[in-house]
């Protein structure tokens, strides 16, 4: 057995099995996130939400998926065919490959690489391509405007996100995600870095194009923005990618600020619960806040969105970065 696992074929099959063990639950989680979002928003708006297909409407996501599979994929006449089909695949693929480095428990990441944080940052900064290519390849004005808005928005908020991540990394002294979580034993980073936590959360809203920053798909102005021309499975891939990105950003928030798989207090009833359960609970808390924000706030105006990113978040995160570095140096808290 051991000799098989060490052979190239064994390593390959083990990696595939690990990837499936992560991706299948993830996709089911995505399906039920769409259901949960509709239920939570319905409850907040005094409606019932999906309640017909299955018990409590629990089979609704699968009914939706079946509908998407049955429908016809329409490629517009003037579209750039290859790129038009490639864009949703790219979005979906990027939302999946980022999960390779997420540690759900100590040593549970598929690839526990030294530059895990940078890898995640790189993958999330690539997400903009799926949207730009979709907008350009559709050969439609609404789609193109949505893509341009999205590109500007995602690039702008990445800057402040980068500074927030650097602030956290200063306190950790490593780019490894497991080390980031282990450094939070005793004190989760959202307490000492509270303003950064808020900025990071709002930036993740903008990065995933969620309300109140969902201007790229603002239906009152752009119909559906960059995916206005997409139907059936290509639309479903965008949809899955967006929700998988939401879960990814929530788990990044969990890892950077909420202590990953660590229990809130390391005492008896709390540390009986296994780490992955804590991780999922924290991710669910972040996701609930995503939905809560969507049900509560009206959409931002575009220039105000840019102002918030460049003139408010960037200076605050820059100053806080310098303050954190100074405090770590003065009090001698720098990690070895």
């Amino acid at each position: 057995m051991d000799s098989f696992l060490n052979s190239p074929l064994g390593v390959l099959s083990l990696t595939v099995a690990q990837a499936l063990a992560l991706l299948v639950p993830l996709l089911i989680f995505v399906a039920y996130l769409t259901w949960a979002e509709r239920k939570i928003m319905a409850a907040m708006q005094l409606r019932k939400g999906p309640n017909v297909v299955g018990f409590f409407g629990l089979l609704q996501p699968f009914a939706d998926a079946a509908k998407m599979l049955m429908k016809e994929t329409i490629v517009p006449a003037g579209a750039s065919r290859v790129l038009f089909i490639m864009a949703p695949m790219l979005t979906f693929m990027l939302a999946m490959i980022a999960w390779a480095v997420i540690p759900v428990n100590e040593g549970w990441a598929i690839a526990d690489i030294n530059v895990g944080v940078l890898y995640l940052f790189a993958i999330s900064s690539l997400g903009v391509y799926g949207i730009i290519i979709a907008g350009w390849a559709s050969n439609s004005k609404y789609a193109f405007l949505g893509a341009l808005r999205s590109a500007a928005q995602m690039v702008s908020y990445e800057v402040s996100m980068g500074f927030v991540i650097v602030t956290v990394l200063l306190c950790v002294g490593s780019l490894n995600l497991t080390d980031v979580v282990l450094a939070q034993k005793g004190l989760w980073f959202f307490i000492p870095l509270f303003p950064m936590f808020i900025i990071f959360f709002i930036s993740t809203l903008a990065e995933t194009n969620r309300a109140p920053f969902d201007l790229p798909e603002g239906e009152s102005e752009l119909v559906a923005g960059f995916f206005v021309e997409y139907s059936a499975m290509t639309f479903a891939l965008f949809f899955l990618g967006e929700y998988a990105n939401m879960i990814l950003m929530s788990s990044l928030t969990t890892i950077l600020f909420l202590g990953g798989w660590l229990p809130p207090f390391d005492v008896a009833p709390f540390n009986w619960v296994p780490g992955p359960i804590w991780f999922i609970l924290k991710v669910c808390l972040c996701l609930f806040t995503f939905v809560w924000v969507r049900a509560t706030f009206p959409r931002y105006r575009y220039d105000q969105l840019m102002r918030l990113g460049w003139k408010v978040f960037l200076p605050i995160s820059l100053v806080w970065l310098v303050l954190t570095a100074a405090a770590l140096k003065i009090f001698g808290w720098l990690p070895a």
């Binding site: 690489i113 530059v115 900064s125 690539l126 500007a152 990445e158």
Partner: peptide
């Protein structure tokens, strides 16, 4: 050189090429 690889993707692909494409 994993650090350089990631920085290449973040800086050139994630920012510079987006502006080019734009």
């Amino acid at each position: 050189a994993e650090f350089l690889a990631m920085i290449l993707v973040i800086v050139y692909v994630g920012a510079v090429a987006v502006l080019f494409l734009f």
